[in-house]
Design a protein around this nucleic acid. Sequence first.
DNA 1: TATAAACCTTCCAACAATGGGAAGGTCAAG
DNA 2: CTTGACCTTCCCATTGTTGGAAGGTTTATA
Lengths: 172, 172
Amino acid sequence: MNIGKAAAASGVSAKMIRYYESIGLIPEVARTEAGYRDYSDKDVHRLRFIRRARDLGFSVDQMAELLALWQDRGRASADVKRIALEHVAELERKARELMEMSETLSHLAGNCQGDDRPDCPIINVLSEQDGFESCHEHAQPRFGKTGIEPDRKRRASSDSTVSDSKGGGIRR
Amino acid sequence: MNIGKAAAASGVSAKMIRYYESIGLIPEVARTEAGYRDYSDKDVHRLRFIRRARDLGFSVDQMAELLALWQDRGRASADVKRIALEHVAELERKARELMEMSETLSHLAGNCQGDDRPDCPIINVLSEQDGFESCHEHAQPRFGKTGIEPDRKRRASSDSTVSDSKGGGIRR
DNA sequence: TATAAACCTTCCAACAATGGGAAGGTCAAG
DNA sequence: CTTGACCTTCCCATTGTTGGAAGGTTTATA
């Protein structure tokens, strides 16, 4: 099965399949004589696994962990559960953050006439002069670097097994 | 006031101040003889406005709109309100998406023993064979986890000769 | 005053995850 | 044999932010 078929069958785009291969999330797959990637049903199964994990919001690193556990018949379900619950906590944190912003804003909008006059509590809050912004003090960084190792080269011709996949072995 | 002071006073990092200037969100500021950026209180006030908008999750494009309205004494509060409410809708949509993922996952985790045996409903769902996925049907919207739609249409002149920044459009 | 620390400048790269597209090779059907 | 639909690799863009290098400037101190 070529990459187009595999993409259709798995729901992961061909672009992303190549990308996942390039970063080592999935092993290099078989090739035809002409160099076309050739996917087995097992490969497609793995791609579907990935798509579902992605649809649940898992990061590439987490998917790598989950894939490793999936393959590991001696896994402890506790490990899977831990990853899932950590992710749940993160999802809830983000959702809460978004909801807080949303609530602040819709409260302000509720007090805005929304007519052709300029006066508006939204603009007023944004342009407040002083430094003690009563409610919404969120000094948090919008992006946290969650310990991902830097590594630029994505050429791993030989040694497909990526030996150590603990602690985030995905290189980009 | 140099950029470090302006950053401390506004809560926007020096890096981001330069970035916002480079994309045209804020105008080029005065310079000292040595080439250091020199911020007035008015400039800092604008930066604080930006920081508050950013804290409410507004995108650079929306901040540009809001800044324009802020400066416009003949603005209609309806315009501000519209921007805010569109953003609220987007925030709510994203939050809902995250919560759905979170709920699906925590439900699965709730049925997982979390012991040293391998059996685990989370893994089972991820590796389901057919296209069954009863609960979490998402049709095929196929966008990122936080669903940031590409409404990108900004024109970049393909080369950054540092010269043109008067256009008014935000370029990156 | 000399010198070092603490700034500032610009430019380049990285991150997440994905898509767009070019330049070229391959395969199937007409 | 040509056409078109594939495939290949490679580079670029996205959004917002940070990190760092290489070099100039200001300031505080020895």
